[in-house]
Every structure is written in structure tokens, then in C-alpha cells.
Design a protein around this nucleic acid. Structure first.
Lengths: 207, 207
DNA sequence: ACGTTTATTTACTGAACAGTCCGAAACCTA
DNA sequence: TAGGTTTCGGACTGTTCAGTAAATAAACGT
């Protein structure tokens, strides 16, 4: 028996995430979050315990979303695994979408992996952020590794290659495109990088 | 006939760079810079025109240093170009040194490419920083592309591969390891990523 | 309809911020 | 050694910051 909450929690966290993405953590004030979300300062503190709490919850929500996208894109039968990997790579280098139905931000810098951006900015002095960011990385890396194994079973990738090593490398490339994109390079250039990476995947020795 | 400057400009810029690297741009106050460099606020404003000016000059100095390191490591005869590329890749994934004779910071997060870190944090809203960061990227990329061409001439890399594409990809990987390193992964893991990347370089079809 | 409980808003506080200013110090020339 | 010039560093200003607390509004059970 009490007054129900008047805002949508996820909607607020999305708005906060967008703000953090464009201004960074230290570049975003509580008033900025307040303006972006429409919530007053008091409500923010009551619901999320301040700026840092908003960040942690936004990253947690991001993590939950992130786990779904690549998993759905990459999971499936062994047949076609290589094509799925190809499609994922091409999409991933153009940024991480804010939500399942929202395409990545138009400016590539704002579309960089949220977790990566926060980890680079404050991860060195914020263990919790660092851990959360690494969780984001790990879950995607695992999905990629699984898809690599599927492609290996289907004879599309050299069975001697270590799928974990390949997954690490591919994810490192995707994270690298966040940086290259922040430099201002065109989407075409990022596509070209992704295609180069895909072309270098080790094929079976004798087909 | 006047009082001479009492500090070494490069030394001050190095200290500021280290501060910016560990705390980020927005996370660094003018007092922090003052404490790190030993200069008073007035001197900082007189010599560098404030925080943003310090950043620009620090990045310019970084650019000048950065241009030399890889160029010296990668330049040389066609013979051995592939080995030089290998050595460079292995070193690069462990961070960018603060100076020629100073090894990268012990914490991998603080050793990330200074330009990349700044570009990701404020590049979206600071065109000058973005441009400087891209210059840093371009100069190293050009050095790598040249080394790739040397290796091609020596028959160590598939002559049909586009050296610029390969250089973009390799640099993207190196930038990606900055992010992966910020997640807290071990140096061994980064070495492994570098070795995987090197192993995938396209070799000539018939040796 | 009323009182309780919670959400929300607004005003407030002390600290930290970027940037300015000025007295003091250091140096060169004469 | 005196004068002129520049650097130096602490003190100062107005602003913005994160976080709190009190006041108001809204919804629910009874």
C-alpha cells in the first residue's frame, strides 16, 4: 500500500546509458542524467543511489542485453556457422545497438561498446566497473568461440585452430574498431577491416 | 634579459600525460596537473593556456615520440621485415611506453595508447583531439604498411594481399588489446592474441 | 473519506572546480 | 648594484559539483 513508481526503470537506464556514452562518466553530471531521464535528483538517489549506482545498473542492463544479441545471431546449426560469424563480424564493427530494436548511434564514437568505454575511462580505479565490463566481454567471446567450433565441425575452419584463441582475436578486433571508429574513420573502412579479418580465418588444409 | 623558465617543458608534459592517462581528461583537475608537475596554476596557464592547452601539447609531444618508435623498430631491409613485424606486434600489445627509455606503465590500463584513450573519452566533442589522435594512428599505420610491403618483397607475405588493409587490421588489433588489457586480462593473454594474429598473416601460396 | 507509505520535487550545503590576479622572486643588462 | 622583465606560486572569485534533507504530491488499504 504505497505510491507506485512513476517512471520506467529500463527507460531511465537507457537514457542514462546514452548520456554516459556521449559524455563519458566523469563528463556527465547528475544534473545531466536528471535532464536526460526527466527524473529529479532526489528520485535518482532514491532509486539508484546516485551517479555511480546509475552507472552500475545501466551497465548491468547493458550486460543482459548484450548477452542476447550475439547469442541469437551466432547460435544455430553447424551448417552456416561461418556465414553467421561473417554477418556478426560485419555488424559488430559498426557499433553496439542501444537496444534490440534501436540501431547503433549515428556517430560511431557514441556507438562504441558501452562497457569498453567505461572500462577504459575509469576501469583502472573502479574494480566493479572493470569486472562488469569483463563480464560483457566474456559472454560475447564465449558465443563467438562456440560459433567457431560449429564452423570447425562443419569443416569451414581449420580444426587445428584453437577456437578460444580465435574468439579472443576476433573480439579484440571488434573492440579495436571502436577505437578506430572514434578516430573518425568511415563505416566503409570498418567494413573493410572486418572483411580482412574474416578473410584471414584459417581454412581447412585440404578441402 | 628576464627570468628564465624554471622547468623543463617536456618533463612537465610527460607528467601531465601520465596524469591524464591514469585519471582520464575529465577526471583530472588543474590541481592534479599542478601536483603532478610541480608547477603552480599561474605557470600552467601562462605556459600552456590551461587544462585543454596542456592536453593538446601533451598529445602533440606524444605524437612526435610515437612516430619515432615504430618507425625505428619496423624500418630496415626487406630481409627480416616479417621478424620485425612480429617483434613489434608482441611489444605493442603490452602498451605504449611513456618515453623512449621508460617502459609502459605496470598497470596495462595506464599503458593504453594515450591518443586512443583521449579520443574515446572526448573525441566525439573535441575535433582537435580527434584529429591529433587520428594522426597518431596514421603515422604508425603507415610504418606498419611499409614493413608489410617489405615482407612481401622478401616473399614472406602473400604478394596479393593489400598492405594497407593488413596494416589497418594489425593496428586495429593493437588498439583492441588496449581495451582487452583494460578489462584486466593478463599479459600472457595479450601475447597470445598477438601470436594468433601473426600466425594468421597470409603467407605466399607456393613457397 | 482518511491516514499511511512511498515517490517526487525543490532548496540547500560544503567541497571541488576552472580560471584570474597579484605580490614575490629570479634573472639579465648595464 | 639598480632597473626592467619575466616567471613563479599562492590566494581569490564565481560557478558547478555530488549528495542531503525537508516539503509536497500521489496512490493504496482500510
Amino acid at each position: 500500500m504505497a505510491r507506485p513508481r512513476n517512471f520506467d526503470r529500463d527507460h531511465v537506464l537507457h537514457a542514462a546509458e546514452r548520456q554516459f556514452r556521449t559524455s563519458g562518466y566523469n563528463g556527465t553530471s547528475v544534473d545531466d542524467i536528471s535532464a536526460a531521464t526527466g527524473l529529479g535528483r532526489g528520485s535518482l538517489y532514491g532509486a539508484f543511489d546516485g551517479k555511480h549506482g546509475v552507472l552500475l545498473e545501466a551497465m548491468t542492463g547493458y550486460f543482459a542485453r548484450l548477452a542476447q544479441g550475439p547469442r541469437k545471431m551466432l547460435a544455430g546449426p553447424d551448417e552456416g556457422a561461418l556465414e553467421r560469424l561473417h554477418a556478426y563480424l560485419l555488424r559488430a564493427v559498426h557499433g553496439v545497438p542501444l537496444a534490440a530494436d534501436v540501431p547503433p548511434a549515428s556517430d560511431r564514437a557514441g556507438a562504441a561498446c558501452f562497457a569498453a568505454k567505461m572500462a577504459l575511462e575509469i576501469g583502472a580505479s573502479d574494480a566493479e566497473v572493470k569486472r562488469l565490463a569483463n563480464d560483457c566481454f566474456s559472454v560475447v567471446r564465449a558465443a563467438v568461440a562456440e560459433c567457431v567450433q560449429a564452423a570447425q565441425r562443419n569443416g569451414d575452419i581449420d580444426p587445428d585452430a584453437d577456437p578460444d584463441d580465435l574468439a579472443y582475436l576476433l573480439l579484440t578486433i571488434i573492440r579495436g574498431t571502436d577505437v578506430v571508429g572514434a578516430y573518425g574513420h568511415s563505416p566503409d573502412r570498418l567494413t573493410s577491416i572486418a572483411e580482412s579479418a574474416f578473410a584471414l580465418l584459417p581454412r581447412p588444409r585440404h578441402r
